[in-house]
Write a protein that binds this DNA or RNA. Structure first.
Lengths: 192, 192
DNA sequence: ATGATACTTGACTGATCGGTCAAGATGTAC
DNA sequence: GTACATCTTGACCGATCAGTCAAGTATCAT
């Protein structure tokens, strides 16, 4: 017995995600959100709470809509060495395309760090997702003898996470896809 | 024939560097600078220009006072594989100590990116410094047969830069020194 | 149709932002 | 000693920030 919302919450949240991804948390003002989401301010507050709550929802949506699909192949039982190479190939392509907005998780860790515990917890969930995916792919690759038995899966998974986040930063600094691809190949060559 | 400054410009610039390093460019307000530098606003403007000009000076000071010393050993003719290991060892220690403020260059690339051309140019100078230092150490290490002749110095130098910046990010996310150290060892093991 | 409930709109708030202005203080050169 | 150039101090500016409030509007249940 009340008026219905005139917009799709999920679609609006996607728009908010895009803004936060490109401009960061502090760099995105409520005026920006109103404009690009086509919503009044009070509607935002009614639906999502304050700016910080909206940002946390955007972080969670990023995990589900961006990270999860990107990690799907690494998490598959068919994953192996080539899956890892393909993952980084797609990453380099994404990080060096048009806006160079990087990865929302990496951006958020850098911008807010330990100053925003709620955001950091969510970032670390995403980070652990990636680490777990790498561990799966590395373990499978070892099992099928694509990688040496001596390889330290735990440390190498962390190494690959570091590499992924480092790639986003170098892309922001203006490195070319060719340069980043070469660095990835140098890394992968070392695993064998 | 005029009044003399009542403060040491270099010392004040060091203080500004510390603030920008810990809080970022946008996160540091003029009020913060006044407080921690013990200077009036107009004195800041007289000596350094506006906030952006002060930030650029801080970036340049970081390069000379923080980056250069850190890279000195890598640039030495005596540099080799162990020098690289020591570099990362000190890095991990610095990145995981107390404030976890990371590296000013990495922070700036992440915060401002291509949105601030002046800052990005200076960040890339620092990035090239590091890449050059790694190239030197890698080349020397190859010459003394600590690394295989087949190693791609160019790509590997970029790889090490990526890892260094990635380490700062993972440290900000809360990774322990032990975890990061293990990842570094996994990386170094792959070079051999 | 009507009433209750929720959504929408836009003006408004106090705080803070970077930057400026004008007046007063101080040291140097003569 | 005096005059002048610079430094210092603190009030001030318009703009923008996140968040709030109140009035108007639309939809659902009855």
């Amino acid at each position: 017995m009340a008026r219905t919302k005139s917009f799709d919450e999920a679609a609006v949240l996607d728009q908010a995600l895009q803004l936060f991804w490109e401009r960061g948390y502090e760099g995105t003002s409520l005026a920006d959100l109103e404009t690009h989401l086509g919503l009044g301010r009070q509607s935002l507050y009614n639906s999502f709470g304050d700016k910080h709550a909206l940002f946390l929802k955007a972080l969670e949506r990023y995990r589900r809509r961006v990270s999860d699909p990107a990690l799907a192949q690494l998490n598959s039982p068919e994953a192996g060495f080539d899956t890892i190479r393909q993952f980084f190939g797609r990453g380099v392509q994404a990080f060096t395309s048009d806006t160079r907005r990087g990865c929302l998780v990496a951006n958020t860790i850098s911008e807010l760090g330990s100053g925003d515990g709620d955001a950091l917890v969510r970032c670390n969930h995403s980070r652990e997702d990636m680490e777990r995916a790498f561990r799966n792919a590395l373990t499978r690759a070892k099992a099928r003898r694509e990688l040496p038995k001596t390889l330290d899966v735990e440390a190498t998974a962390m190494l690959l996470v570091i590499q992924n986040y480092g790639l986003t930063l170098l892309a922001k600094a203006g490195a070319t896809a060719t340069q980043l691809h070469a660095a990835v190949e140098a890394l992968l060559a070392g695993l064998k």
